[in-house]
Simulated assay, not measured.
Amino acid sequence: MAVASVLCLLIGLLYLALQIRMVFSDQIKQEYASLVLEEIERADSARHLADVWEHVPVDSEARAEGQRNARAELARRLTSLAALVNASPSAAPRIAPAAPAAPAALSPDANLHDTDALLRNASAYWHAQRDIDSADVRVRITHVAYTVIALAALLFCMLITALGMYAKRTRQLAGQSQEFEHAALHDPMTGLPNRRKLFAALEAAAMRRQAESATHKIAVLYVDLDGFKQVNDSLGHRVGDEFLVAVSKCFRGSVRKADVVARIGGDEFAVLVRGFSTDAELVEIAGRLIACVVRTDEQMGIGLVRASIGIASFPDLVDDYRRLIGAADEAMYQVKRSGKNGYAFVDQGRRAATL
């Protein structure tokens, strides 16, 4: 369609250029006809002057001199007229020059009746020719106007089409950009946010808390799956991947929509709790996460996997939110050293609670 539109545009421009050229050509012809008619009027005036001297009643030397001068002026006018007519760029009737043996209408001794016939014929032809050229100019100007309107409409349609294609391509690129951004911030297997997305969400939550001068607290629960390596070694990576996908769905359904569940890597997960009041809420969340692991393990008939969870909160237990994930990771290792399958707060004054 675009190629056809461009071809139509080129053809229209060529046609427009041709019409404009013909308009100028017809205008030149029209002006040339006007020049010829002006010369015919001058010749006709000289003819009338010669006729006046022919009918002067007194036969004298002055009359003869006047006749000679009037005839000579008429001959000059007719010669000039003939040169102009014979030089016409269009196919116009030519005026024959005077011959020595037979004086023509251009000769000073020519019959005035022949001159009258010559002038009448030339005047009639060139008046008609000027009218034709004027009509041609009007018609071609109309064609030029219609062509300009058509080309403008075509350009407008092409512009609208181009804008539509640009908008469509922009939407496609925006969609692809969103897909790329989603892929860069999410785990491809489980669909959970990755470490990069978790850090960005933690940063946003801390900035929002600071901007709103809020009193709510932020926490991170770091989850490590105990015994998961044995699943991959004994049952294969396919079963291990299925377990990760299933437990990820369970994790996501066990927390609030405002909280963020992320896969840190391998068999490690983290939950960002954007707001809580007491540690009991965090203990409840940790219990639900551990229950998810146990339930998924039982449903798949594995009997090997449990969870160790480290808990760190800001600003109570950690005074810098940027250390929350690392502190929760350290607390998780407290659980592993205490027998696994439980949770522990980062506060060194508390002992790991095991289930």
Rank of each mutant, 00 (worst) to 15 (best):
1 M>Q: 05
4 A>N: 02
9 L>T: 06
10 L>Y: 03
11 I>N: 01
18 L>E: 15
19 Q>A: 15
27 Q>S: 15
28 I>V: 15
33 A>I: 01
33 A>V: 02
38 E>H: 14
39 E>S: 15
46 A>R: 09
48 H>R: 15
49 L>A: 14
55 H>A: 09
55 H>L: 10
69 N>G: 06
71 R>C: 12
76 R>P: 01
83 A>I: 14
85 V>E: 12
88 S>Y: 05
93 P>I: 09
100 P>F: 13
108 P>Y: 03
111 N>R: 05
116 D>C: 05
117 A>H: 08
117 A>N: 04
123 S>V: 00
123 S>F: 07
126 W>I: 03
128 A>T: 06
132 I>K: 01
133 D>A: 15
134 S>T: 11
137 V>Q: 11
137 V>M: 11
145 A>G: 11
147 T>G: 15
147 T>Q: 15
148 V>N: 08
179 E>F: 11
181 E>T: 13
182 H>I: 01
184 A>G: 06
187 D>K: 04
191 G>I: 06
193 P>F: 11
193 P>Q: 09
195 R>W: 01
199 F>E: 12
202 L>D: 02
212 E>M: 10
212 E>D: 11
213 S>H: 15
217 K>S: 14
224 D>F: 00
230 Q>F: 09
243 F>M: 10
245 V>L: 13
248 S>Q: 07
254 S>D: 02
254 S>P: 00
255 V>F: 04
260 V>C: 13
264 I>G: 00
264 I>S: 00
266 G>F: 03
267 D>K: 12
269 F>Y: 14
270 A>I: 07
271 V>G: 03
274 R>K: 14
275 G>P: 02
276 F>A: 04
282 L>H: 05
284 E>M: 08
284 E>G: 05
292 C>A: 10
300 M>N: 05
300 M>V: 08
306 R>P: 00
310 G>E: 00
318 V>H: 02
323 R>H: 10
337 R>L: 01
339 G>I: 07
342 G>K: 03
344 A>C: 13
351 R>Q: 15
